[in-house]
Simulated assay, not measured.
Amino acid sequence: MMTKTGARVVLSALLPLTLLACGGGGEKKADNMAGMEGMEKGEGEKGEAGKPADKDAVSLSAQQIADAGIEVGRPAIGGVAGAIELLALVQGDPQGVQVVSATIGGRVVSLTRNLGQSVRRGDALAIIESREAASLNAEIEAARARSALAQSNLRREQRLFAERVSPEQDLIAARTAATEANIAVRLAQQQLSATGGSGGALNRVAIRSPLSGQIIARSATLGQTVAADGELYRVANLSRVTIAASLSPADAGKVKPGTRVEVTSAGRRQEGRVTFVSPALDETTRLVQVIASLDNAGGTWRVGEPVTASILLPSIGDHSITVPSTAVQSVENKMVVFVRTPSGFKAVPVQAGRRNGDQVVITSGLTGSERIATTNSFTLKAELGKGGEMDMD
Score class of each variant (00 low, 15 high):
Arg8His: 04
Leu14Trp: 04
Pro16Lys: 07
Thr18Tyr: 14
Ala30Ile: 11
Met33Glu: 15
Ala34Lys: 13
Met36Phe: 11
Glu43Asn: 12
Gly44Trp: 13
Ser61Thr: 15
Gly69Asp: 08
Val72Phe: 05
Ala83His: 07
Leu86Tyr: 05
Val99Leu: 07
Ser110Glu: 14
Leu111Gly: 01
Arg121Val: 12
Gly122Glu: 14
Asp123Ala: 13
Ile128Pro: 05
Arg146Glu: 08
Gln151Ser: 13
Arg156Glu: 02
Leu160Pro: 05
Ile172Val: 07
Thr176Trp: 00
Ala181His: 06
Val185Pro: 02
Arg186Thr: 15
Thr195Phe: 00
Gly196Met: 06
Gly196Tyr: 06
Gly197Trp: 04
Ala201Thr: 14
Ala201Leu: 09
Ala206Leu: 02
Gly213Cys: 02
Gln214Val: 07
Gln214Tyr: 02
Ile215His: 04
Ser219Met: 02
Ala227Thr: 13
Ala228Trp: 03
Arg234Trp: 06
Ala236Thr: 06
Val241His: 01
Ala245Asn: 10
Ser246Gln: 11
Asp251Ser: 13
Arg260Thr: 15
Val261Trp: 01
Gln270Gly: 02
Glu271Met: 10
Arg273Ile: 03
Val277Met: 15
Ser278Phe: 09
Ser278Glu: 10
Thr285Trp: 12
Gln289Leu: 15
Ile291Phe: 10
Ser293Cys: 00
Thr300Ile: 11
Arg302Gly: 05
Thr308Gly: 09
Ile311Ala: 03
Pro314Arg: 07
Pro314Trp: 06
Thr322Val: 13
Ser325Asp: 14
Ser325Asn: 07
Thr326Tyr: 10
Val331Tyr: 15
Glu332Thr: 02
Val339Ile: 08
Ala347Arg: 02
Val350Leu: 03
Ala352Cys: 02
Gly353Ile: 09
Gly357Gln: 04
Asp358Gly: 09
Val361Ala: 14
Gly365Glu: 01
Glu370Tyr: 08
Arg371Asp: 08
Ile372Thr: 08
Asn376Met: 01
Ser377Asp: 10
Thr379Ala: 13
Glu383Arg: 07
Lys386Asn: 14
Gly387Ser: 08
Gly388Leu: 11
Asp391Ser: 14
